[in-house]
Amino acid sequence: MFIFNLVHGVMIHVHPILTTVIQRLGLGLLTLFVVSIIIFSSLEFLPGDFGQAVLGQAALPETVEAFRRELGLDKPPIERYISWVGNVISGDLGTSFSGRNSSGVDRSRDVWELIQPRLANTIFLASMTALIAVPLALALGITAALYRNSIYDRVVNSVTLTTISFPEFFVAYILILVFSTYFKVFPSLANISDATPFLEKIYRSSLPALALTLVIVAHMMRMTRAAIINLLASPYIEMAQLKGTSKAKVILHHALPNAWAPIVNVIAFNLAYLVVGVVVVEVVFVYPGLGQLMVDAVSSRDIPVVQGCALIFAGTYILLNLFADVISIITNPRLLHPR
């Protein structure tokens, strides 16, 4: 337990939960640091370089060399890594390589400027999907546990399993076929921008959100069901039954509060996926998200943008996992209320 000694000399006992959160945050930062090394060095091993890619096969070696010097690519990797990390810490993700050309006119943009609108779009789509998928998965999981081995349970299980088993692009195209070709309910293109009004944004993002929901619901729903059913054999569940507690209350009040830890972990994992893993769905619906930006940046060897995106993805994973850990702890009375 941390004890902070304040200026006044008053000792304040910090709840062990806070200690754990601080520890986890520290570990998260350490992880992020390690990830930054991995990102940087793996990009070093990427074949070809930006100069070659922009100037083309025919460029003279001297031109390429000059261009590389201008971008600072001639410096040793360690020096470049240190300056990159230093800038990132001070909030500067660097400047994009693209937009430059050898003519000397610099129309390149700040990496953050490129990433920011895309990140906003990605978070919009992820939140919208999460708001549909998480409650849906929980509701399906809980009811499936309640009516386990019934027809309902089997239908829910097999339908969700089916949707998760298809490749994402297939689900996406089927949705387009049904909802924008046969029944013209939703647009097949989800091209939104800052200027799009909020409700219009929701309307246009419906199909990608639906596609992603179908992809992630099964995982969360099955974990919810399994975590609850796993507890139903506990003596305290039998005790609750013998106190005349109704079936629904046994599950909601007695089983669910003890089942959060595994469920929340799976939810966090899927939310992270919504941010970092949805490039295929973005491509199908031409949704201007972060995934597509990163793929474009990789193909054009625009290293600062790739690094920025990768760092944001890593940060998302770390933050969501931290969140899951904290929820697991505060739903465990043994940790929340130590002896």
Binding site: M239, A240, G244, N258
Partner: peptide, 21 residues
């Protein structure tokens, strides 16, 4: 309606029979 009102049960392992939450 009878369980926990007119007929009650005391189980063997109290540690396992109380809901930890």
């Amino acid at each position: 309606t009878l369980h926990g009102s007119r007929i009650a049960y005391v189980a063997q392992s109290a540690a396992a029979s109380f809901n930890p939450a």
